[in-house]
Computed example of a mutant assay.
Amino acid sequence: MKTIAIIPARGGSKRLPGKNIRLLGGIPLIAHSIRYAQQCPFIDVVYVSTDDAEIKAVALAYGAKVVDRPETISGDLEPTVSALKHVLENMEGVTDVVLLQATNPLRPGELLNEAFRKYEEGNYDSLFTVTRNHQKLGKIIEDKFVPFNYEIGQRSQDLEPLYFENGLLYISKAELILKDVIISENACPMIVNHPFANVDIDTQEDFDYAEYLFKKDIEN
């Protein structure tokens, strides 16, 4: 039985060029996820799946193993599971996979350990992290705003609890991923209410916010 972490990281980001190796707190963005995985006693090996030579060099420098991702599964519209499946198809003995996204570099320190224990003790086949949404949401239909999760005049604190997939981490059985599934129908949604859950870097504004939280966390 073996548990591995996989960090998918393509090159060629259009909205924030070179984002996966940009320095956050003096460390390349992807290195935050590599280091995080390396600190977990449940993880045997950390892999980075990439199509980019610079990302590969950084990943190797920080002690990860690299699987070269072919161009056929490196497009903008290619689902993440394709990269995970490609890694698994080239190895044996893997039972569980932890997916860490490079664009979610900040995570509570003990989150992964707690998540993996919950995953094993609950005998789940997958687990992912979610965060409660506190916004009043609605749709615009024929130029009119139609409330979705509340009634006009309702207080925010009285909203029915809704949650969003925050991307901090995913755990899944390897056999599921080989069937193109990361989150199964009976997956465990692990609730994480933490400022880091709101960080998903895709733009300069996202990166600036991550820097702010990173500095604030160090100061505390």
Rank of each mutant, 00 (worst) to 15 (best):
L127F: 09
T131G: 04
G93K: 08
L137F: 12
Y47V: 00
M1G: 12
H134P: 02
A59F: 09
I30H: 05
Y47D: 01
P79R: 04
P79K: 00
E120N: 00
S49W: 00
I4N: 11
A102C: 11
L100A: 08
N104P: 00
K65T: 04
I43V: 13
N113E: 15
G11I: 08
G63H: 05
V192N: 11
Y150W: 11
Q204A: 09
N149I: 12
R155G: 11
D44K: 09
L29K: 07
L100H: 06
G93M: 11
S13C: 02
M91S: 10
H194D: 05
E78I: 11
L100M: 07
Q38P: 10
F207W: 05
S156F: 03
I21F: 09
Y47K: 00
V81T: 08
E151W: 09
R155Q: 12
Y62H: 13
D217Q: 12
A197K: 02
D158C: 06
S49P: 00
T72Y: 10
T50L: 06
D96T: 11
F128I: 10
A37L: 09
L168D: 07
S49T: 05
S74W: 06
P108L: 01
T95V: 14
L137N: 13
L23W: 03
Q39E: 14
T129Q: 10
S82N: 07
R22Q: 14
L84K: 10
L84Q: 09
I140K: 14
N193L: 09
L29V: 14
Q204L: 02
V181I: 15
S33M: 04
N220I: 07
T72Q: 15
V67G: 07
G63C: 03
I4K: 07
V98M: 10
R15S: 13
V67W: 13
C40I: 14
I152L: 08
N20T: 04
E78S: 12
F145E: 09
E185I: 03
I4D: 08
L111Y: 05
Q157Y: 13
V98Y: 03
E114S: 06
L168N: 05
C188D: 15
M190R: 00
Y170E: 14
E160D: 05
Q39V: 06
V94T: 08
R155T: 10
E142F: 03
K216R: 13
K19Y: 00
V94W: 02
S74I: 07
G18A: 03
A102L: 05
F207K: 05
V192M: 14
Y47A: 00
N20Q: 08
L29N: 14
G11P: 12
M91I: 12
L106G: 08
N198G: 05
H134M: 14
N123S: 15
A210P: 03
S156P: 00
I177L: 03
E142D: 15
A53Q: 03
L178T: 09
K136I: 08
I191S: 01
H194C: 00
P147G: 08
A210Y: 07
K216P: 00
Y163T: 02
I171A: 11
D52T: 06
I30V: 14
S184P: 10
I34C: 06
Y119C: 03
E151A: 12
V67L: 10
F164A: 06
L178V: 03
A197R: 04
R35F: 05
L162P: 01
G138P: 11
M190T: 01
D143M: 10
